[in-house]
Design a protein around this nucleic acid. Structure first.
Length: 279
DNA sequence: TTGCTTACCTGACGGC
DNA sequence: TGCCGTCAGGTAAGCA
């Protein structure tokens, strides 16, 4: 499940392969999906610097009208971006790989290909800065690994009673880029119960630090591959063995030895330690 | 405005 | 072996 570390790792591999290249042709899966926008508008666009916001990848497209425009990519749950030789049939919608959704053919003989088994990924070409059809991106909170992620503002938000703290981490407005895996990991590190509806200043500051630590460590290992996620070069993320909570229900807590408990919080599978993450 | 639920979507897996 | 039900989860929309 691509979250901030996975998307950032993809961005780092993707950027040198496609920045400066011009889109010569576009093909897409004919399946009617509202998650695939008017991708044909990318034709003629020269891809500028790719940036990441939360779990979104954004790249300016320069050129003659309809450009300048902006390419918006979201990997959803199972999205994988690859850069393949343009004549590789496995990178064509309708080709031997039934999960290829979008293909941008570039001017250097390669193609940027989105493969997405569950169709939760998103690709669109919008006017620069236009977020009218992208409410989550429009309301995205601060980047957790940048100074804009202010610990006091974070603590003030969590001090107000509201939805379970895990739901607020997943919401993207409080902090950008956290998904189910790293929410569980950060809460475990900060010793906070995922269903807590109010978090005091001291614990909130601990959680702020934990979010940063977990995400930075996962970025350093190029993310977590549970099943689907792959880097642009096809490699797996290496953070899986570092996980302390996610996917470890029924196993002993690495901190206190108690048995980790699985539950549902915010409609998501959740793992926490009943001994050191007390309600 | 906030919180919650449901829909979307399909591969993997367990049970029969 | 094949069928069926369940689970996984990020985003968006709808409702209370």
């Amino acid at each position: 499940m691509p979250e901030l570390p996975e998307v950032e790792s993809v961005r780092r591999q993707l950027a040198p392969l496609v920045e400066g290249r011009t889109v010569r042709a576009v093909a897409r899966d004919p399946y009617p999906s509202r998650r695939l926008g008017d991708v044909a508008r990318a034709v003629g666009g020269r891809i500028g610097p790719i940036v990441r916001r939360g779990k979104f990848l954004l790249a300016p497209l320069d050129g003659a009208p309809p450009h300048p425009s902006e390419l918006v990519l979201h990997l959803g749950m199972t999205g994988i971006l690859r850069v393949l030789p343009a004549d590789d049939p496995s990178g064509r919608p309708g080709g031997p790989d039934p999960h290829v959704r979008v293909r941008l053919e570039l001017d250097d003989g390669t193609a940027l290909v989105l493969r997405d088994a569950r169709r939760f990924g998103r690709v669109d070409v919008v006017a620069p800065g236009d977020r009218s059809g992208l409410p989550t991106l429009a309301a995205l909170g601060p980047e957790p690994l940048e100074d804009a992620f202010d610990p006091e503002a974070f603590a003030a938000a969590l001090a107000r009673r509201g939805a379970p703290v895990k739901a607020r981490l997943l919401d993207q407005r409080l902090v950008a880029g956290v998904g189910n895996i790293y929410a569980d990991e950060a809460l475990w590190r900060a010793r906070i119960h995922p269903a807590a509806r109010r978090v005091g200043r001291e614990r909130a500051l601990r959680l702020h630090a934990a979010v940063r630590e977990v995400l930075a460590a996962a970025v350093a290992r190029e993310g977590t591959t549970f099943r689907d996620y792959r880097l642009v070069n096809g490699a797996s993320g290496r953070y899986l063995t570092e996980l302390d909570a996610y996917g470890r229900a029924g196993l002993p807590c690495r901190r206190c030895g108690a048995t980790l408990r699985g539950s549902t919080v915010a409609q998501r599978g959740t793992v926490h330690c009943p001994a050191c993450q007390r309600a």
